[in-house]
Design a binder for these strands. Structure first.
Length: 190
DNA sequence: CGCCAGATTGACT
DNA sequence: GTCAATCTGGCGG
């Protein structure tokens, strides 16, 4: 078991988004491991990205300019979205975790989500945060240490990655910035 | 403090 | 397929 260090996230957002596929997102919840394989991500940039929250200024923009490897948790509608700050030195960016494949602590996750269907457990950004009990309290905390009960481990290599345009954004860039594992049934939208 | 848009979800036709 | 619930964050007053 190897925890991804800070340097893993000190890289271009799109590269980090792609590298994260196949990694294991782990949440220590009351002494139990809840985890899932990351199967879908999206990259967000700074001012030049119309869909990025960094455009609007405020605290979220500050965090996106800040330390790579820190969690960025923010609410839309009634959901928490979990991002990891990722960019090269002096740059801006973050990676949104959009879907994971449940691995450990599935029964606990089902309780937290109040659903029984495994496939619907974590196949969306708002769903996986609920399944792993991730909320605003993780905002700005580093995920390259086990100290706060949330981190990412090396796990497996992904054979085939599909690249597409981002989902749900009102105005997207021309470059496709969504990455997912080909054929995986836990991806939010194939 | 009030207004409003939104990187969503789930229920329903 | 459509559509509304519901709440956070940014911004103007």
């Amino acid at each position: 078991m190897k925890i991804l260090g800070k340097s893993f996230y000190t890289d271009d957002p799109a590269s980090v988004a792609k590298k994260l596929l196949g990694k294991l997102l782990v949440r220590m919840y009351y002494g139990k491991r809840l985890s899932g394989i990351i199967v879908e991500t999206e990259a967000y940039y700074g001012r030049e990205d119309p869909a990025s929250r960094a455009r609007r200024g405020g605290d979220l923009a500050r965090v996106m300019h800040g330390e790579p490897g820190h969690a960025l948790v923010y609410g839309v509608h009634r959901n928490w979205l979990f991002n990891i700050v990722a960019h090269e030195e002096g740059e801006v960016g973050a990676v949104l975790i959009r879907a994971i494949e449940p691995l450990e602590g599935i029964e606990v996750m089902k309780k937290l989500r109040k659903v029984n269907d495994l496939r619907k457990l974590t196949n969306g950004p708002g769903k996986l945060t609920k399944a792993l009990a991730i909320d605003k309290s993780f905002h700005k905390l580093p995920v390259y240490t086990t100290k706060h009960g949330l981190w990412v481990e090396d796990y497996m290599d992904v054979k085939e990655v599909v690249v597409s345009k981002r989902i749900g954004v009102t105005e997207d860039l021309d470059i496709p910035l969504r990455f997912y594992v080909k054929g995986n049934r836990f991806v939010s939208k194939p």
